[in-house]
Design a binder for these strands. Structure first.
Length: 799
DNA sequence: AAAACTGCATCTCAA
DNA sequence: ATGCAGTTTT
């Protein structure tokens, strides 16, 4: 493989294994290029070969920028390029400086680098140590703002307001512009909230996910120096999944590649995408970006990749037939040379338990046949709630599985707590994080004292931390409170060494700092004590330790020379950021930007469970798609905006095209939704499939007859799951007074009696509370700790 | 100040 | 069935 003298191998060999159309795409290196790549047509192959090809042609790798939507996609792309280059005999030196990253990470980086130049700008300036607010932080901030504005959060649901604001930001509209176009009462009110929200973010020196994009656009538009530097460095821009870019990302791309606003002329922008896989409309993705690429970039070359290398002919036929039902679409021919393969199966199941077991049995059968391992299999569903029953089935069947929820770990209470400490340490203005931890663990800074300080802070327009520093001069605070506050402030001063973070020395590694914060904040003791008391909190101390490990791992990967905060400033002066602080920021940033899809680990020997959105871009030997029912897929919410359900159909299309050889699609006749067992309607998409290319079977009856009851011991008829569809028990019996119900419940499950739960095991009833449909029992389970169950639905039997 | 209780709303999807 | 916010209890 490697040429003997280590010389660069002729570029032809890098492209040797490509088809003619793929090769054309990889070789078209100059000018704007759009590659319309059908599912499974090898677009990642094309991008990676193209990068390697460019480098082999002598283009310095630091001039190449490739953008993706997830870290995982970026990581894989980088890896494959490195492999190609190594195979071609090119050393590490050649690929140094190559940038393959996500939109959001690139923006975070640019904002850090150029933050000093934006600080002067009053309304949008941020400091380099800004915090990235995720959805939960946004909601917390928004709640505070609504409260301050005396708006009921019932009439102004924070998430709804935030989504209106997010839409505006994605259109690159700021609060002021939004207000100008706000005519009706509702949007005028939102405009006021928008403006207050922005103020809150800037005061906290925080940005939300949308800001990462919009502020970067603003930076590149308004700061010529930054724009020039960026455009001169990156001469070859590549964007993956271009169909999912929103307006802000579109504009960002024009700025990065140096598109001429007048003529549309642009040097080298290369985008790859598939309009049929556009599934992020709700996040502002604008499909016209890809459809009108030719108009945006006159003279663009368009290359179509139609040959599918992934799926068998029957699977492809099913996908193609389905997607043809979309009216707003440019038809592409999908074809494959892989003619064999089984027909995909469509099964009507009795309910979600049947569905789950059916899928597990199907996986086991495939596994036994030997051609596939667990990691070649996946389950796709429309929403996360659908994973639970599937997990249970896999667990009882002892089939290893992983759920693709990369963000789940970082959303745990205890982990967020520790991160909040770290965030305040890196950015003392971060009020949302500060409020989260100021009295956790309890340190005598109660609600009343804190609201006094908050009041003072907001009057002076300063962050809470600053007000805490001057607590002794705030009227109306008890000496005890002042003292507690001083102690709290001291904690942070000691961790940051009075803000110096040890200056330029790096004696303290990041993991030591994190570990010290964990211990000295009192969080560790707090959660250890909690773990003693309650089974449910048992794993919290371990999760905290895991975050320390994550910091240690990050430390290994971290490359200070690549940290924009440690580069000399654009004006040539040396960086001011202490290395430890820079590393802390970079760590927090990497945590903020993990995606669910990042957790899909091909090395894990396990079946992967994920949403259809997370599945995009992946492929599996065998895939099960569950919950093909009206209201779920297509989802009821999505149909409100788009009655045709075209995006939902594309989502279904994405799922089908992930499967290489085996595909099963299921639909349950009954499904428990919000505790109520309900009759379902099969998805419209099922009837759109080519009936002669699939095998349809109705197994719902058989399951009810023979399988339903054989999993564990019989349940008490009065409380067991009913096989027939069932509503809430009728209250027409007349004996429905709360007192009477409580009495009945205590007869069945008296306080102190032992009960068995199908899932949680054996436990002791501690108390009975509530009334009517809300009658609940608090039960201390032996294995899983104390839970409160609604008696009406809980599957309990007396022991 | 923490824990328990209760009424109420609720489930997309996610960087 | 679960999670929350606000309230009551310990």
């Amino acid at each position: 493989m490697t040429p003997p003298d280590g010389q660069i191998e002729p570029a032809q060999d890098l492209l040797a294994s490509l088809t003619d159309e793929q090769r054309l795409a990889a070789e078209t290196t100059e000018g704007p290029v759009l590659v319309v790549a059908a599912a499974g047509s090898g677009k990642t192959r094309v991008i990676t070969r193209r990068i390697a090809h460019l480098i082999s042609m002598g283009i310095p790798s630091w001039q190449i920028l490739a953008l993706t939507f997830t870290n995982k996609a970026a990581g894989e792309m980088r890896e494959r390029v490195e492999l190609l280059l190594a195979d071609a005999g090119m050393g590490e030196r050649v690929r140094r400086g190559l940038t393959v990253t996500t939109f959001h990470a690139l923006c975070a980086r640019l904002l850090r680098r150029y933050a000093p130049m934006m600080e002067g700008a009053p309304r949008w300036g941020i400091h380099a140590d800004y915090t990235i607010y995720d959805t939960d932080d946004q909601v917390a901030l928004m709640k505070g703002i609504l409260k301050e504005m005396n708006l009921e959060s019932s009439r102004w649901p924070p998430r709804t307001v935030l989504s209106v604001i997010s839409d505006a930001k994605n259109r690159l509209e700021d609060a002021e512009e939004f207000e100008k176009s706000a005519m009706d009462f509702y949007s005028r009110s939102v405009a006021k909230i928008f403006s207050a929200y922005e103020k809150g973010l800037r005061l906290a020196n925080a940005v939300d996910f949308d800001d990462l994009l919009t502020l970067t656009v603003r930076l590149l538009r308004e700061c010529e120096e930054a724009r020039t530097e960026v455009q001169q460095r990156w001469r070859y821009l590549m964007i993956d999944e271009y169909q999912d870019t929103n307006h802000a990302q579109f504009v960002l791309a024009t700025l990065l590649c140096g598109r001429d606003e007048e003529t549309g002329d642009a040097p080298n922008i290369f985008v790859v995408g598939d309009p049929d896989q556009s599934i992020y409309g709700w996040r502002g993705a604008d499909i016209t970006n890809i459809l009108e690429f030719g108009e945006h970039y006159p003279g663009a070359k368009v290359i179509r990749l139609g040959q599918n290398f992934r799926s068998t002919a029957p699977i492809l036929k099913v996908a193609d037939t389905l997607i043809r039902n979309n009216k707003k679409r440019i038809h592409k021919d999908l074809y494959t040379s892989d003619e064999g393969g089984d027909a995909p199966e469509v099964v009507l199941c009795a309910d979600e338990h049947h569905e789950a077991r059916l899928a597990v049995d199907w996986f086991k059968k495939l596994h036994e046949e030997g051609a596939l391992t667990w990691k070649d299999m996946a389950v796709f569903y429309r929403n996360n709630a659908l994973s639970r029953v599937m997990e249970d089935a896999l667990r009882t069947a002892n089939v290893p599985y992983v759920i693709a929820r990369g963000t789940a770990f970082y959303q745990r209470e205890e982990v967020r707590d520790l991160l909040a400490y770290l965030r305040v340490l890196a950015n003392p203005s971060d009020d949302v994080s500060l409020k989260r931890i100021v009295n956790k663990p309890a340190r005598k800074i109660g609600k009343t004292s804190l609201s006094r300080v908050e009041e003072e802070a907001s009057m002076q327009g300063r962050p809470i931390m600053e007000a805490l520093r001057t607590a002794s001069s705030i009227a109306g605070l008890s000496p005890a409170a002042t003292k507690a506050m001083a102690k709290f402030v001291t904690l942070f001063d000691e961790w940051s060494q009075g803000g110096t973070f040890m200056g330029t020395s790096m004696e303290t590694p990041l993991s030591d700092l994190v570990s010290r914060v964990l211990v000295q904040s009192g969080l560790q003791a707090h959660y250890r004590a909690a773990a003693e008391r309650s089974e449910g909190d048992a794993e919290k101390p371990a999760n905290l330790d895991e975050l320390v490990s994550a910091a240690a791992e990050f430390e290994e990967r971290y490359d200070p020379s690549a940290d924009p905060a440690l580069q000399p400033l654009p004006d040539g002066s040396p960086p001011e950021t202490p290395p430890l602080l820079a590393m802390l920021r970079a760590f927090l940033e990497s945590v903020a930007l993990v995606a669910d899809a990042d957790k899909v680990d091909p090395a894990a020997g396990a079946v992967t469970l994920m949403t259809l959105h997370a599945a995009k871009g992946l492929e599996f030997g065998a895939a099960a798609m569950i919950g093909l029912e009206e209201g779920l897929l297509p989802s009821a919410r999505a149909l409100e905006e788009d009655p045709e359900g075209e995006e939902e159909r594309r989502l279904c299309f994405v799922g089908i095209t992930r499967a290489m050889r085996h595909l099963i699609i299921t639909c349950a006749k009954y499904r428990t939704i919000r505790g109520l067992r309900e009759r379902t309607v099969p998805s419209r998409f099922l009837s759109e499939l080519p009936q002669d290319s699939i095998r349809v079977s109705d197994q719902s009856e058989a399951f009810e007859e023979f399988e339903y009851w054989d999993d564990d011991e019989p349940r008490a008829p009065s409380t067991g799951a009913s096989r027939a569809p069932r509503r809430a028990p009728s209250s027409s019996s007349g004996a429905g007074s709360p007192a009477r119900k409580r009495e009945l419940a205590q007869l069945a499950f008296g306080v102190g009696s032992n009960v068995r739960h199908a899932q949680f095991g054996i436990g002791e009833v501690k108390s009975i509370s509530g009334a009517g449909v809300n009658l609940r029992a608090t039960i201390a389970f032996r294995d899983v700790g104390t839970k409160t169950l609604v008696l009406q639905y809980a599957k309990l039997t007396p022991v």
